[in-house]
Design a protein around this nucleic acid. Structure first.
Length: 424
RNA sequence: GGCGGGGUCGCCUAGUGGCCUAGGGCAGCGGUCUUGAAAACCGCCGUGGGGCAACCCACCGUGGGUUCAAAUCCCACCCCCGCCGCCA
């Protein structure tokens, strides 16, 4: 939810922001009008209600004919109050609807434009020259099947397309990655959390996933619960309706959870293997911080993501995502894209967003400053490890001529082996 | 799932239709006193909205309803605690 005060002061920057996202700037004007209408309806109600209270006390004290007369007036007033209350409710609902529909302000440094207008910030690691090595590049599915690590056929048989089984070293690989990630997170001072993967509608709404992303969310009709698409949802909602002492900030968490995504509208896209799936496990970092610290915390999350990719010895680049591709909550987003040899291009592995106060307003999470005052705080999230895509990157980048896969040194203690060998 | 108890401004608690403008205690903050501390005493002490301000309005788990008037009465739901049943 955007800052209404800021919008009243300067609607132009919201119009510009909407335009930069490729969204409707006209929403801003509708909201300004609805906000004014709400204020007027509220004032009208307040006046009548006050009158009613005063009259009520007179009724309580009066008797006989005087009381009868006052009661007659009170009855009329009650109708007026009821009508004003209804009007106020309708005006508020309209304004609330619009304020929730507006996306966060975009960061001034975010590149303007759509999905392809990102800015490359850095490239790390070395892309192997497989041809020079005399290695025929196998893709992750071919490698994974040979290793007995990935089974998408049975995934489809049991659950449908875009489902998979991790088997043998594949299963161990997930556990090793998660353990490495959690160890790194803990060493960096983040609190490990295993959150619920089913949440109430309020948690989903609060994190902005029931807006433009609603199509990708699984809903359990019978219980009115949602399957989360990321641990960001329960982690953000963790402090919902709370007021956190400023001195307890920043609070940094790392949550390990399954993630469920309907992937509506992606038919025919990334259909091979486990790149785009309906369910996967992920370790997500989440930070509650003072708004003035948000950018520094964002840089911190990006650094943690890079630390992980460096540890896995993956070649990757960091991009500054363009305004049209930010989602509704983020003011700025950095993606780390790993090189995928079989595709000959970089693909998103991790992503970190600065949501400023957008989520905390919706979830009513605030900080109490030293002077006792209360204000919204900033929330930030970042992927530490998304299991299937990380497995893809490891298998493909560390494959060897005989179809075996070298295990990056940082992962060896968690996996208990240095090489993954194809089954006979 | 069944039965019972409960949800009040950080915590505890009073309040069963109208001086409730939600009272009291604890904790916290400021002050008086003190060499210092404690005690005592005095003051402040929820969130949101509106207003330059005095002040006004909303919120007593949530949503409806009854009434001139609801923390209080009625209905539904949610959550917590206990016991029973069922399942892990």
């Amino acid at each position: 939810m955007i800052d209404l005060r800021l919008l009243r002061e300067d609607p132009d920057q919201y119009r510009a922001s909407q335009a930069a996202r490729g969204e409707d700037p006209g929403l801003v004007d509708e909201l300004v009008a609805a906000d004014e209408a709400r204020r007027a309806a509220g004032a009208q109600f307040d006046t009548l209600r006050n009158e009613q209270k005063v009259l009520g006390k007179q009724v309580a004290r009066a008797a006989g004919e005087e009381k009868a007369a006052l009661l007659a007036r009170a009855r009329e007033l009650a109708d007026a109050v009821k009508a004003a209350d209804t009007a106020r409710g309708e005006a508020a609902a309209r304004a609330d609807e619009l304020v929730l529909a507006l996306s966060n302000l975009v960061h001034p440094d975010s590149p303007r434009g759509g999905e392809d207008d990102f800015r490359v910030l850095a490239e790390h690691g070395t892309i192997r020259d497989f041809a020079a090595e005399g290695v025929t590049v196998r893709d992750h599915l071919e490698l994974g099947e040979a290793l007995g690590a990935i089974d998408v056929e049975r995934g489809a048989k049991v659950s449908g397309s875009r489902f998979y089984f991790l088997t043998g070293v594949g299963a161990l690989l997930e556990l090793a990655l998660v353990n490495l990630a959690m160890a790194q997170a803990t060493a960096n001072g983040l609190m490990p959390i295993i959150p619920p993967a089913l949440v109430k509608p309020s948690a989903m709404e609060g994190t902005g996933f029931l807006g433009q992303a609603a199509e990708n969310v699984y809903r359990l009709e019978a219980d009115d619960l949602y399957l989360v698409g990321t641990a960001e949802v329960p982690l953000a909602a963790y402090h919902g309706d709370e007021i956190l002492p400023a001195e307890s900030l920043p609070r940094r968490y790392a949550g390990y959870s399954p993630c469920f995504r309907r992937e509506a509208g992606t038919y025919g896209k990334d259909t091979r293997g486990i790149f785009r799936v309906h369910w996967f496990d992920k370790v997500e970092m989440f930070i509650f911080a003072a708004p003035e610290d948000a950018e520094a915390e964002h840089a911190r999350l990006l650094a943690y993501e890079q630390q992980m990719l460096d540890a896995l010895e993956l070649p990757y680049r960091v991009i500054d995502v363009a305004t049209g591709d930010l989602g509704s909550s983020a003011t700025r987003k950095f993606d780390c894209e790993a090189w995928i040899p079989s595709q000959g291009r970089y693909r998103e592995l991790t992503s970190t967003s600065n949501c400023t106060t957008f989520q905390s307003r919706r979830l009513r999470i605030r900080q109490r400053d030293a002077d006792g005052s209360v204000r919204p705080l900033a929330t930030l999230n970042g992927t530490l490890v998304a299991v299937p895509r990380t497995i893809i990157a490891i298998l493909e980048n560390h494959q060897q001529p005989d179809g075996s896969v070298r295990v990056p040194a940082a992962l060896v203690p968690y996996l208990g082996r240095e090489v993954l060998e194809p089954l006979g």
